[in-house]
Amino acid sequence: MPEPLSGIVTDALRRVRKSSGVPLAFAGVVNNSTSLRLQHFAGNHAGALAGLSVDVGHGLGGKVVSLNRPMVVEDYLRTPHITHRYNTLIEREGLRAMMAAPIIVNRTPVAVIYGALHTPDPIGGRMLDVLAAEARAVEQEIVASRARLEHGAQSEDELRDRMTAAYARLRSLVDTVDDARLAEQLAAVTDFLLAEAAADSAVVELTGREQDVLSLAALGYSNARIAEALGLTVHTVKSYMKDAMRKLDASSRLEAVVAARRAGLLP
């Protein structure tokens, strides 16, 4: 589980302890729908369960994953409703009554949170409600976090495309303006757009026209459209592209664009 989500789960476990009164709350992450690895704990524990891989269908957490719903057992060591593969470790931790709820995202269980007592006392509906509510809260936070990450990635791509488009437009203007000083200033702006690009360890030198062709190829332009934009023939564009690909050790236009960006030759 990524670090930010680990923090979300840990915070939820602390709230479970505070609101329900259980001495120990813990959680495990589902791995490939076959097992559950226990790795987040809130409260004092002996460490017997840390890192334990619980098979789906076994123990309390494994059964919760297979059923996709919360469960409660008043005495983990004696209940007939689960398998007892992990009794030795549960006994070593001194745990008896236990509740567990799945964290479900896109109809798939991704984790399980537990609350446990050291005595075989009944776990009331209020305690289970607290656990289930925290599970739902974690689900919502995971969905929101994924949406933020996806939106951020899309925004970065859009910004890069706008920078590349501006770079290509400015380079084309450099070749068309009659004012030498203005052309020099425009060239300085194109250099500035490259200033933040990550430089590759290998030194690659492209001609101005090769950079022009690659910058338009980065926007998805066809050879014909690049030729029209730059006032060249399609044959000439192909020649520039072939030379750029050779210098960048690329086997396709896309590889050439990626390599040029890595070398700091495109924004």
Rank of each mutant, 00 (worst) to 15 (best):
K238P: 00
A250W: 02
D243R: 15
G62R: 06
A263M: 06
R37A: 10
R85C: 02
T236I: 02
P80E: 11
T79C: 06
A187E: 09
R146I: 09
I113S: 00
R96I: 08
I123W: 05
V257P: 02
S215V: 06
L49Q: 03
R92E: 14
T190L: 03
E205T: 15
N223L: 05
A132F: 00
L216G: 07
V64E: 09
R262V: 00
V73M: 02
G124V: 03
D200R: 11
G231E: 05
V237I: 15
V234Q: 06
T119E: 14
S6Y: 13
Q140F: 06
S222Y: 03
G208A: 13
E150W: 12
I226S: 01
E156P: 01
P70R: 06
T34K: 15
L232P: 02
P80W: 09
A187L: 05
L38N: 07
T207V: 05
A50K: 08
R169W: 11
G28W: 04
H118S: 13
H118M: 09
L219C: 02
H235W: 00
R146G: 08
V237E: 10
R37P: 02
V65M: 07
E139W: 04
Y76Q: 03
A100P: 04
V9E: 00
T119S: 09
S215R: 03
P267W: 05
G264S: 09
M163G: 03
G57T: 08
Q185W: 07
A244T: 04
N68K: 15
H58L: 11
A153H: 14
A187Y: 01
Q154K: 12
G152M: 11
S66I: 02
G264M: 08
R69S: 10
L52I: 14
E228P: 01
K63L: 15
S239Y: 11
G57R: 07
E91V: 11
A166G: 12
D212A: 09
L173G: 04
A101R: 02
V56L: 06
S201H: 13
I8Q: 03
L67F: 12
L36Y: 04
Q39I: 06
D200S: 15
L13A: 02
G231W: 08
L77Y: 06
D191T: 15
L36T: 02
V213M: 08
A260K: 01
R181L: 15
A197F: 06
D243L: 13
M163I: 01
H45D: 07
A46R: 13
L206A: 08
A218K: 04
S20V: 07
Q39R: 11
D243F: 10
E158M: 13
A229Y: 04
L206K: 07
H58K: 15
V54N: 04
K242F: 10
R107L: 14
V16C: 04
D121L: 13
L13Q: 04
